[in-house]
Amino acid sequence: MSGAIQFKGIRQGLLVTIPPDDEWAKVIADLAIRIDQQAAFFKGASLALDVDKRAVRRHELANLLNILQKRDVNLISVLSTSATTQGAARKLGLAIELVDPPTTTSHVPDALKITESPHEAPLLKSDVHGTEGLLIRRTLRSGQSVQHNGHVVVLGDVNAGSEIVAGGDIVVWGRLRGVVHAGAYGDETCVVCALDLQPTQLRIGALISVSPPSKKRRKHPERAYIDDGMIRAEPWTD
């Protein structure tokens, strides 16, 4: 006999406890059903998932994350005593302890910060050191949003009505029309580059700028950065 999934309201959102003996696939399916039954209630909710001793592998957790995202439910943290589960959660950018719900400021919510972990996958050998980024190989459409602690690179357009918030730089190999925020943790050395830079709003660190009204301008790659306390854009040639 297995118990049912239990929900409990806590300060940080909803604490979800799953039955210890059910198969993971069944847990996911049951959870999806419970959410669908009360879609309006769960929409936008922050979940903390308590799996106790269960070892959940990264792809299993990713499956769950995917299903929750489709239903507009945010999984913030995964609580477990299993090292496997903790590792999987970390790799997916989830917290492994309760965290306060994300704030509504333009900055990256605390919950999205990846806790540095000593057992990261080994890096392939490289002569050059860099920082991590997220590569998105499609066009971001209106209503879509990307938040990432590192750099964000888009191979495609960033349409008006979409947004990118990055801890680092933002590079768009296409048209940039949406709202972008580089250096969202306050790094003013960050840059925003695009083949056609025409964002609705461009933020770097704590500064905000808007694009000059577009007359018949020729499209050319540009790079925006902070110079002397102001956001400037210059041709991206070097």
């Binding site: 489709k70 499609r138 971001l140 459409r141 209106s142 209503g143 879509q144 008006a160 009505g161 979409s162």
Partner: peptide, 15 residues
């Protein structure tokens, strides 16, 4: 056009 873009995004994200 903005709303069409949103719709297309949702359709692309379908299972």
């Amino acid at each position: 056009v903005r709303d069409a873009d949103r719709i297309i995004g949702l359709l692309e994200a379908e299972e």
